[in-house]
Computed example of a mutant assay.
Amino acid sequence: MSKAFSKIRRISLAAAGLALSIASFSLQAAPQVIRIGVATAGGGDPVNWGGSPGGVVRGNQWLEEEFKASGVQVEWLFFKGAGPAVNEALSNKQIDFAYQGDLPQVIGLANGLKTKLLLVSGARNNLYVVTPPQSEIRGIKDLKDKKVSIFRGTNGHLVANNVLAANGLAERDLKAVNLDTGSSQAALVSNGVDAAFGGYEWFKVRDQGLAKVVYSTQGQDPAYTRQASLLVREDFEKENPAEVQRVVDVFVRAADWASDEKNRAELFKLWARSGTPVASWEAEFDKQDLAVRNSPLVDDFIIGRYKAVVSDAVKLKLIRREVPVDGWFDTRYLKAALKKQGLENRWTAFDAKGKPKTGAATVASK
C-alpha cells in the first residue's frame, strides 16, 4: 500500500469518525422527552386544567401531535402545591417548561432559578372572596379579625394583599391561614374558616349552594388581576432551541383558537373536562373578551404587572431584594411564531395601565 493511499485512507477514516461523532452528539442532544409542569392539581382523565390556552394545548394533545413524528414524548406534571411546588421541580430539573402564576415565577427568579419567560398563557385572571352562605360578611372590610384562607406564594396572594390594602386592611389584620385550593374548600364548607380568597374554582362550590361570592375583581382595575405565563429552563432552551420554538408555536396556535369568540362555547366545554363546569367558565369570563384574556403577548401591561409583583413581593418580604425582569422576557420565539402563523396583528397590545396602546393593532377576527 502506497504512502499516499495510506494517508488518504487515514483522512477518510478520520472524517467518517468525525461525522459519526457529530451524528451521535446530535442524537444525544435531542431531548427524548419534554416535561411540562403545571401549577395546579388539575382534574379529569387525562388530567387537564382550564382558564388558559395551555389547557387547550393539553386537552387537544397538540404537543403530542407536534412531536410524534420526531419520537419525542411529552409529559405533563400537575402540582397540587401550585407555584411553589413547580419552583422546586424547576430547581431539581425535574421539568423543562413551567406554567405558573406571576408571583411564584418572580420568587423563583429572585431565588436564582435560571428561566426565561416565553409568552403569556392566561392573563387578567380574576380573584374572589367567598364565605359560607349564612355568613354576615358582605365585603372586604368585614374580613377584619376573621379567619380567612389565603394560598400563600401563589399568584392570588399578592392580589389579595393589594385588595386588602385598598380597603384599609393588611394580611396581619386577619386571622389568615395558608391553605391550598382543595383544603380551603373543605375548610369553608365545614365552617373551619370564615372566608377564603380564590379563583374560578369557587363558582362550582357556589352553584352547589355551599358558598357565596362577596367580592370580585371583575370589572375593576386590571392591576387587581393575576397573570400566568409559560417559562422554560434556561439550560434546556440553550440546548434545544428548535424544540422550544415548536412548543411556543403550538401555544400560540392555541391562543389564537381560544381567542376566537366563535369558539367560546366549545372552549368552555374543553376546559370543563378538568372538572370545572361550563357554568363556572361562563361566570369567570362574563362580559370579558376572550382575546384579551387569552392573548400571548408580553406587552407593557404584562411587563408592568411583573415589575409591580417584584415590588410588592419585596414589601411583603416574600423576596429579599428587587430583581430586574426586563432581561428575563425572551420573546424571540413568540415573535417568530406570530410571524410564521400570520398573527402579528391578531391581538391588541396594552399599556402599563391595561388600556389599548395608541396605534396598537386591533384584535383580528378569524
Rank of each mutant, 00 (worst) to 15 (best):
residue 102 D to Y: 08
residue 98 A to G: 10
residue 99 Y to R: 05
residue 109 L to C: 10
residue 101 G to D: 05
residue 92 N to M: 15
residue 84 P to E: 07
residue 87 N to I: 03
residue 95 I to Y: 01
residue 87 N to W: 08
residue 88 E to Y: 13
residue 89 A to F: 09
residue 100 Q to D: 07
residue 97 F to D: 00
residue 87 N to K: 07
residue 90 L to R: 02
residue 101 G to P: 09
residue 102 D to L: 03
residue 104 P to W: 03
residue 102 D to E: 10
residue 91 S to L: 11
residue 101 G to V: 10
residue 97 F to W: 03
residue 102 D to I: 03
residue 84 P to S: 10
residue 95 I to C: 02
residue 105 Q to M: 15
residue 79 F to T: 10
residue 100 Q to P: 08
residue 108 G to E: 00
residue 80 K to V: 13
residue 105 Q to L: 13
residue 110 A to Y: 10
residue 83 G to N: 04
residue 98 A to R: 00
residue 89 A to Y: 08
residue 88 E to F: 13
residue 96 D to T: 04
residue 87 N to D: 10
residue 113 L to T: 03
residue 112 G to M: 07
residue 86 V to D: 00
residue 98 A to K: 02
residue 105 Q to D: 13
residue 88 E to C: 12
residue 92 N to Y: 12
residue 104 P to D: 02
residue 112 G to R: 04
residue 99 Y to F: 13
residue 109 L to D: 06
residue 99 Y to G: 06
residue 83 G to I: 03
residue 109 L to F: 14
residue 86 V to F: 05
residue 101 G to N: 07
residue 105 Q to E: 13
residue 90 L to F: 14
residue 105 Q to P: 08
residue 111 N to I: 01
residue 112 G to T: 02
residue 96 D to S: 05
residue 81 G to W: 07
residue 93 K to H: 15
residue 80 K to N: 14
residue 97 F to C: 02
residue 103 L to R: 00
residue 86 V to L: 05
residue 79 F to L: 08
residue 93 K to G: 14
residue 90 L to M: 15
residue 107 I to R: 05
residue 89 A to G: 07
residue 104 P to V: 01
residue 96 D to N: 07
residue 113 L to V: 07
residue 100 Q to N: 09
residue 114 K to N: 15
residue 95 I to L: 05
residue 109 L to M: 11
residue 91 S to D: 12
residue 100 Q to H: 10
residue 80 K to S: 15
residue 113 L to G: 08
residue 79 F to Q: 11
residue 87 N to C: 09
residue 112 G to K: 05
residue 113 L to R: 03
residue 99 Y to T: 05
residue 89 A to M: 09
residue 99 Y to P: 04
residue 83 G to K: 00
residue 91 S to A: 15
